[in-house]
Simulated scan of single mutants.
Amino acid sequence: MKTTLGILQLLALMVLIFGTIPGFAQPELAQPFRDCRVQGSITLYDYKTGHWTFSDSIDAARATQPASTFKIINLLIALESGVIRDEQEVVKWPGHTDTVLYGYRPDIYKDMTVAEAFRVSAGWVFIELAKRVGRKRYAYYLDRSGYGNGNLSEKGTDFWNFGPFCITPVNQIRFLVKVYEGKSPFSRRNTGILRKVMLTESNSKYQVWSKTGWTRIDGRDIGWWVGYVESAGRTTFFATRLCKLRSEKNPDFGDCRKSITLQVLRQLQVIE
């Protein structure tokens, strides 16, 4: 009897924390992943109702490197610490490339504003900013923000792509909600700049604020799309993460981050 009660209490706690029981996926949300031939999950949070939706609640609680989605908090930290004045500050191209880690992208090898670097995901710009911020300030703001696992032991500057610093999809959303509510350690001015830079799509039916991410580590590709959608007075946060072996060729991997997310949002009638 006690064992049964303990199990029921555990399941109730899981529902309270996750909105569902880990391991019990919603099959109708898994089909887009199969269609794209990728592993992964999508996690959604309805701000008005407080309801969480998962395609795979176990995966939603698993931490991996945030890749370029880290640019969201990286921009805020650079602004808050005074490393940059605003999103229009120009960062000088340092004059080197790394085609092994990031791929050859000659279109981004130039001086550019922080806002442009955010939009085109020019990692080198944020690596230059990271050199100015320093690990102590990162540790301070990451801890106050409750963002990630706090492991900054990776010696390289680009710790959000390579190394043990990781974050879960649920944590991604919880942080975005804090920023949205004005409960993060960042000023209203700086979160306003972030909101302006994060605007990805705007039409008569909905608006999307988001950031993609993609890293290659331990023989795997890890792809993200995180953000939130406002439509018809409704705000929905999302975190989609895809994973595959690098040995498995899939030219649609990058596009699938968004196509899966939009398909699920339409399926749940968040957007038309």
Rank of each mutant, 00 (worst) to 15 (best):
M1Y: 09
M1K: 12
I7P: 05
I7D: 08
L10V: 07
L11C: 11
V15E: 08
V15H: 06
G19F: 01
T20P: 00
T20M: 04
G23M: 08
A25W: 04
Q26C: 07
L29G: 07
L29E: 02
A30T: 11
Q31H: 09
P32L: 14
R34N: 14
C36R: 14
G40V: 14
Y45C: 08
K48P: 00
T49K: 10
G50N: 10
W52Y: 10
I58H: 00
A60P: 01
T64L: 15
Q65I: 10
P66R: 04
T69K: 06
L76W: 01
I77C: 11
S81G: 11
V83L: 03
D86L: 03
P94K: 14
P94H: 13
Y102V: 11
D111C: 06
T113L: 01
E116A: 12
A117V: 01
R119M: 04
R119D: 12
V120T: 10
S121K: 05
G123H: 01
W124M: 09
W124Y: 15
V125N: 02
V125A: 00
I127C: 00
L129M: 10
R132A: 05
R135G: 00
K136G: 00
A139R: 14
A139P: 01
Y141K: 08
L142R: 03
L142E: 11
D143S: 15
G146I: 07
G148F: 02
S153T: 15
K155R: 15
T157S: 06
W160D: 12
N161M: 12
I167L: 11
T168A: 11
I173Q: 07
L176Q: 11
V177L: 13
K178I: 03
E181K: 14
P185R: 00
S187D: 08
R188C: 00
R189Q: 13
R189P: 05
N190V: 06
G192D: 12
M198D: 05
T200H: 09
E201P: 04
N203D: 15
N203I: 06
S204Y: 09
K205H: 14
K205M: 06
Q207Y: 00
V208Q: 02
R216W: 04
R216Y: 08
W225H: 15
V226Q: 02
Y228P: 05
E230T: 09
E230F: 02
A232N: 15
R234T: 06
R234I: 02
R234P: 02
R234C: 02
R234S: 10
A239R: 10
T240L: 01
T240E: 05
T240D: 03
K244W: 00
K244Y: 05
E248K: 13
D252M: 13
L262A: 01
R266A: 06
I271L: 10
